[in-house]
Amino acid sequence: MSGPETTPAASVTVRALVARGSGAELRIERVRLPAPGPGEVRVTITAAGVCHSDLSMANGTLAARFPLVLGHEATGVVAATGPGVELAVGTPVVLNWAPACRACWWCRRGEPWLCAATTAPTVPRGETDDGVPLHLTLGLGALAEAVVVPERAVIPIPAGLPPEQAALLGCAVLTGVGAVGNTARVAPGESVAVVGLGGVGLAVLAAARRAGATTILAVDVAEAKRDLALAAGATDFLLSDDRLSKEIRARTEGRGVDHAFECVGRAATIRAAWRLTRRGGAVTVVGMGAKDDMVSLGALDIFHSARTLRSSVYGSSDPDREVPVLAAALADGALDLGVLVSGTVGLDEAPTAFDRLARGEGARWVVTLDSASGRNGVVGLRGGC
């Protein structure tokens, strides 16, 4: 097919990556989206990242409703608008999976990342081609040729940005940069350990380097992540094994790091990050885990270590303000996200990107869509990791 097909009712039929149930095979299907209503826009997607949260939706780690269109990290162009929309057709945008209402208690006190109106994990919208009610990941369902979303769920960006990098601004990059700058507030000269080197973990490494951290230790179970970690900004790479705590302390004068970032979302790696941190240091949990994966810490350890354990939701960020800043840095060359993109695939090959993600290969795999030529992006895998 040659891009989205408009029906007489002004809804659209598009191709999308759909999960029919927990653990089910991911398939490309035709789905029907409604026309933009008041305050809504239709965005033609140009690139969408494959995020671990999408995998957690598909495999049942996070509660989801099916059938489900996956994807929440994307960039595209406004293709149509509903009544009352200010954005013009043709505006390039990044999708925002947690648009703030600006009116609730959390928004009024300057914490829009905790907005009471934040979208549920899955939101009903549209239907499959066989008439089954459809759900969208985080209200977006961005691994598709197009989405229909509220205007406040899109953020204008400069034209001409590399789409495979611009897509990452909406989740991996904003989350990682915000975790370092907003949540942990890493200062020049401090030491950092990052546990888990997917797209978010690598973004944390890069942000720590930009923040002036002098010792930046990257930790993962896969030796194949070493080169990626060093390219992203790590001063050293360590395998996660029984010697990890000893190795970390050997590089921090016996103390442990000032800041540990957990970017996996598992109880075991949260405990590991806790052990890597010095007395009085801080552990920031960035990874989203399962509700029944319980973290156990000793009461005396908590008291004696004087460590802080906290989470960073969406980088404790305000996307409406911070994404344009990151986009401007990407536009002028001050920010290079190329190291985060392990390769691009077309929409038809998106399931293979999820397979690679599940195996822990690479950083971020990005699905690219070429609407102008009527084809989804040509497969362009770069390297094995």
Rank of each mutant, 00 (worst) to 15 (best):
P99Q: 07
L55T: 01
G76K: 04
A58P: 06
G84A: 09
L87R: 06
L62I: 02
A48F: 08
G39N: 08
L95M: 07
L26Y: 06
P36Y: 12
A80Y: 15
C101I: 01
V43H: 05
S56L: 11
R15P: 04
V77A: 11
V78Y: 02
R27G: 06
I28D: 07
L33M: 13
A98H: 14
T91H: 09
E86W: 05
C51Y: 10
L62M: 11
R32T: 12
G60M: 03
A80H: 15
V94C: 04
T81D: 06
L26Q: 11
A64L: 08
P36S: 10
A64V: 04
V69G: 08
S56D: 14
P36I: 11
V41I: 07
G39T: 10
T13Q: 10
T13H: 07
A100D: 04
A35T: 11
G49A: 05
V89D: 03
L70I: 03
G37N: 13
V89T: 05
W97C: 03
A16T: 13
I28Q: 04
V43W: 02
E73T: 02
A63D: 12
L70D: 14
A88K: 10
A63R: 13
N96L: 08
M57V: 05
L95K: 03
G21K: 00
G71T: 14
A63T: 13
V89S: 11
R65W: 05
E25R: 15
M57Y: 14
P34A: 05
S56W: 04
P38N: 03
P38C: 11
R15I: 01
V31G: 05
P36F: 15
A64R: 03
W97R: 02
E25K: 13
I28S: 01
A98K: 12
R42D: 10
N59M: 04
T46V: 04
V43K: 13
I28E: 12
R15E: 13
W97K: 01
V31D: 01
V31S: 05
A98M: 12
T75L: 01
V41T: 03
W97L: 09
I45M: 08
V43F: 04
E29F: 06
G60K: 08
I45G: 04
A80M: 15
T13A: 06
V41R: 15
V94T: 00
R65E: 01
L95H: 01
A64F: 14
T91F: 08
H52E: 12
T13L: 14
V78N: 12
P83T: 08
T61L: 14
W97D: 09
R20P: 00
I45R: 02
A80K: 15
P67T: 01
P67C: 03
V69T: 10
S56F: 11
A88E: 15
V31N: 09
A19C: 09
I28T: 09
H52A: 12
E73C: 03
A74P: 09
F66E: 00
S53N: 09
A58G: 08
T46R: 13
G39W: 10
A58N: 07
P38T: 02
P67H: 02
G71F: 05
V12D: 07
L68G: 02
A79L: 12
W97T: 00
E86K: 08
A64Q: 02
P99E: 09
V94F: 06
S53F: 11
G39I: 10
G39K: 09
E25W: 13
H72G: 06
L68H: 08
L33K: 13
F66P: 00
T13K: 14
S56H: 15
W97F: 15
L26I: 00
L55P: 11
A48K: 06
V93Y: 10
A48Y: 03
